[in-house]
Amino acid sequence: MKPVLEGRDVSRSFGGLMALHRVSFQLFEGEIVGLIGPNGSGKTTLFNAITGVFPPQEGEILLDGKPISRLKPFQICRMGIGRTFQIVRPFLKMTCLENVLVGIVGKDEKGTSREERVEQALLELEFVGLGGQSHRLAGSLTLLQKKMLELARALATRPRVLLLDEVLAGLNPSEILQALHMIEAIRVKRKVTIFWVEHVMGAIMTACQRIIVLDQGRKIAEGPPDEVRSNPRVIEAYLGGADA
């Protein structure tokens, strides 16, 4: 089976500091893969490399076998990679409906009328549970709602792969449960492959089939949750780090 998203020896440095060092990974259709590691291990940097925000200086990233590492963020999005942000970034001064419409406009599908787009946007809002909120300003939503709105905007671009950056951070236990249901629904109902960075360890260990561990910009382990959990290098990385 061919991977949907693949990274080959991806490297990126900032002012002499190696943020990513020859990281390789593969994501297969319909999979949900976790990405963990101590603070500053390069998780968000890897997402920024994949989405073209800070493209890799060496190595190759492929979507469906096509290289994407020389493309701009908007082109990568249109190719089929959506993302959310560690610190939520909905368009605060725009309504929920407009937020999602941006994703649809961004996808740039010709031949759809304004009405069809609005209808699609409303469906996306419904899907993430923001059905009645379409005319509220994004800035006035709760944290969970903002995260859901971000998901709806990403889904509106009809991604094949969705990168989730700490969706659970800052949520209370009952909200975490809602978010987990949503992620599962996205994977199953929308047939989206998910690459997921998380700090809330328990949740990601139960939800993911496979975990990749980064430490100081290098991949130090990969495998099923149980195997990763007992890997001595992973234990050392977490216990040796400041935020164990």
Binding site: T51, V53, K72, P73, F74, I76, C77, R78, G82, R83, F85, R89, P90, F91, L92, K93, M94, E98, L101, V102, G103, V105, G106, K107, D108, R153, A154, A156, T157
Partner: peptide
């Protein structure tokens, strides 16, 4: 229009706009 929507998205958050498919 869609263009105006894109204008406001860019004004609100350039990074989020570009990763939502807007050619900023």
């Amino acid at each position: 229009s869609d263009t105006g929507l894109a204008f406001r998205a860019v004004l609100n958050d350039e990074l989020a706009a570009s990763t939502s498919g807007i050619d900023t």
